[in-house]
Amino acid sequence: MASAVSVRGLVKEFGERRVLDRVDLDIAPGEFVALLGRSGSGKSTLLRILAGLDTDVDGAFEVPGTISVAFQQPRLLPWRRVWRNVSLGLRGVDGRAVAEKALAEVRLTDHVDAWPLTLSGGEAQRVSLARALVREPDVLLLDEPFGALDALTRLAMHHLVDQLWREHRPAVLLVTHDVDEALLLADRILVLDEGRIVAEHHVGLARPRRRASFTDLRTSVLADLGVDDVEAA
């Protein structure tokens, strides 16, 4: 089967600065890939290129199917009600019905008619997820979607994303700098450093995963990121 995402020798420069340096990347259909890396390592840049938001690049990449994106900030239109935020841009469907179904999946049935500014951070991020999923994408790009949430809400979101991914089975590229998040959710973990993919780990663990099941792998991923795992010592 053809790849959902295929990247060959991708180079991105901002002026003199080379932010992505000959990146190769393949994501199989339905595969969940986490992209780890320090702040400034080029994760968002790679994702924006795949999303078609930055076209000034060298090298080749191909995303044959449809793409959806959820950003770190939910980026909802504050002047459109929640259900409209989910359905706007869809064509040839009953927007209200489709939005209601998607919002039920992220457990926001009570907020279908709410204004976005009345939502909590976690709720707004769930609307953003519903909005991405309702497009039934072949590829779902997530740029630190839980980064701005509190720790408890983040745990609930991990569970939700795991569930939604198993139901819809898009290929996922999850950008994060949270190693536990990557180990909980991903089939494969890539580590990006200074614009190059420097490490790859396959997470062959059964789902749903517990933190206790991946301590060794955690240590080795942290080592790739240049961090000593204190807990393992």
Partner: peptide, 12 residues
């Protein structure tokens, strides 16, 4: 600009 970007990836 963030909203404009979002509207682009949403296919507006």
């Amino acid at each position: 600009p963030g909203l404009l970007e979002a509207s682009r990836v949403l296919g507006f």
